[in-house]
C-alpha cells in the first residue's frame, strides 16, 4: 500500500492541512486542492441523501482505476482524507492512528485555533513517521 496524500478538512469544508507523500499523483496548487476539498465536502453531504435504504452516512471511499480515496469523519465533524493506491489493507487502523496523532499534536496544542490551518511541526513529523512506516 502506498499513501499518496493526507488531507484534513474542517467541519465547514475548508482544507486545514494537506501533504503529499508520493510522486505518483501530480502535485496540485494549493488553490486547486482547496477547491477539491470543498467539492468533496459537498459530495459527502449529497451522497447521504441518495441513500436507497434507511439509515445515515455519507461518502466513505471512492475509487478510480489505479488509486482511491478514503474519507473518515470524526464525531466532531472534521474529515480525514487519505489518497492511497488500490491494493490497500489496514486503512481503517491507519485512519485511527492519524486521528490519534491529530488529537495529540493538534487538539492538545494550546496555540492551535479551532478550524484554522494546521502549522504544527510535531504533527507533521509524527504523521511523516507513520506514513513512512506504511509506504
Amino acid at each position: 500500500m502506498t499513501i499518496h496524500a493526507v488531507w484534513v478538512i474542517n467541519k465547514a469544508g475548508g482544507l486545514v492541512f494537506s501533504r503529499t507523500y508520493s510522486d505518483t499523483l501530480p502535485t496540485q496548487t494549493l488553490n486547486a486542492t482547496l477547491i477539491l476539498a470543498g467539492t468533496l465536502h459537498g459530495i459527502h453531504a449529497i451522497t447521504s441523501r441518495l441513500n436507497p435504504i434507511t439509515g445515515k452516512g455519507g461518502l466513505e471511499s471512492f475509487e478510480g482505476e489505479n488509486w482511491g480515496g478514503k474519507i473518515w469523519m470524526s464525531l466532531t465533524g472534521i474529515k480525514l482524507v487519505v489518497l492511497h493506491s488500490i491494493a490497500h489493507q489496514g486503512l481503517d487502523e491507519l485512519m485511527k492512528k492519524i486521528y490519534e496523532i491529530y488529537s495529540d499534536a493538534v487538539m492538545k496544542n494550546p496555540f492551535q485555533t479551532l478550524e484554522m490551518p494546521i502549522n504544527s511541526s510535531l504533527f507533521e513529523s509524527r504523521l511523516l513517521g507513520l506514513i513512512q512506516s506504511v509506504n
Binding site: A32, G42, I43, T47, N51, L59, G64, E65
Partner: peptide, 28 residues
C-alpha cells in the same frame, strides 16, 4: 451531479484521463 464531480475530481488529481469507477458509503 455526484458522479460528474467525483469523475472530474479523480481526473484532476490523477492529472490524466483516469476513469472513476465506484464510491461507497456505509449504506450503499
Amino acid at each position: 451531479g455526484v458522479i460528474l464531480s467525483l469523475r472530474n475530481m479523480v481526473k484532476k488529481l490523477s492529472g490524466r484521463d483516469e476513469a472513476f469507477t465506484s464510491y461507497r458509503t456505509a449504506q450503499y
